[in-house]
């Protein structure tokens, strides 16, 4: 059931792309385009996908791509939307596809403004929880406890991850969703919903980076399922910024199971893992409460 749409044979992403083995971001794009189809223009700011798409004059997607500066995905998408609208091409979707740095950090200003204007665009953030394209530096999406090259050894990240979905939901745009590449059909359905929305849709995708997470590439899907099942990355939707809907009941697996597969967390003590478990449980309770509003 879970792979019904994902196995659809029509592909818009070709072989020969430049992603690392086990790249969650590459798979996220492949799935997103299965949902959106041919009539899509993709905007890619500086991120791993600037490389994955392939060097000039090649590119691996069967839709047009505009590569742009780091902080401009949402606004370049807005410019494309305006141009399409004035030309009457309202049947074409604009997909901004950015990493966590380009979304939670440097791109948040333009993204917030696009949401405030309720632009008819889909903004997808493939979140691999650090600046992976520049070689694993911490971003505001890096979770508590993680090693990165700028949070080395005992200076592992001490701050919590910024909750981008809640920030974007607070703009009261029609559709916000979280998705994981470990749940491909759920992800595809969410992009299909996003397409139908009258205004901005934001999809926050859990997209592991085996290279940066110090993890075996073949664990890419498993880790993406574990993140959801241990409630670190719950799958839910927010309609109009207020109506919450949880899409999947997690199996309540301890976070330890998720953390121990990744070298970036290998230094954590039992006490620190307990801290993470408590925060994850608390966050889940908050989310449940929101669904009851």
């Amino acid at each position: 059931m879970r792979w019904q749409f994902a196995n659809d044979i029509k592909e818009y992403m070709n072989q020969g792309h430049l992603a690392c083995p086990g790249c969650g971001g590459a798979y996220a794009m492949r799935l997103a385009l299965k949902a959106l189809g041919k009539n899509t223009i993709v905007v890619i700011p500086a991120c791993c996908w600037s490389i994955i798409d392939g060097p000039f004059p090649l590119h691996c997607l069967e839709v047009p791509v505009y590569h742009t500066a780091f902080e401009t995905a949402a606004v370049v998408a807005s410019g494309i939307r305006a141009a399409l609208d004035i030309k009457g091409k309202t049947d074409i979707e604009v997909l901004a596809f950015a990493g966590d740095g380009g979304t939670l950090d440097i791109g948040i200003q333009a993204l917030s403004a696009a949401c405030e204007r309720n632009e008819k665009i889909i903004y997808a953030c493939y979140d691999n929880e650090a600046y992976m394209n520049t070689g694993i530096q911490r971003s505001s999406a890096t979770p508590y406890g993680a090693w990165t090259t700028t949070t080395p050894r005992e200076n592992f990240k001490k701050e919590r991850k910024k909750n981008i979905s809640e920030i974007i939901a607070a703009h009261r745009i029609p559709y916000v969703a979280t998705a994981s590449i470990g749940f491909p059909d759920d992800l595809i359905l969410k992009f299909k919903k996003a397409k139908e929305v009258k205004g901005t849709a934001f999809i926050h995708i859990f997209a592991p980076c085996p290279t940066g997470w110090r993890m075996a590439p073949e664990l890419m899907i498993k880790i993406s399922q574990l993140a959801v099942d241990c409630k670190i990355f719950p799958l839910y939707e927010v309609f109009d910024g207020v109506k919450y809907n949880i899409n999947y009941q997690p199996k309540n697996i301890p976070v330890k199971e998720y953390l121990r597969l990744q070298g970036r967390f290998s230094h954590l003590t039992e006490k620190e893992i307990e801290t993470i478990q408590k925060e994850v449980d608390d966050n889940w309770e908050i989310l449940i409460k929101k669904t009851r509003i």
């Binding site: 223009i41 905007v43 505009y66 742009t68 500066a69 902080e71 401009t72 606004v75 370049v76 998408a77 807005s78 410019g79 494309i80 939307r81 305006a82 141009a83 399409l84 030309k87 200003q109 333009a110 403004a113």
Partner: peptide
């Protein structure tokens, strides 16, 4: 910055 970025997107279209 976004003004020019929006123009970039629109002109590219």
């Amino acid at each position: 910055h976004s003004a020019m970025a929006a123009c970039v997107g629109a002109a590219a279209t």
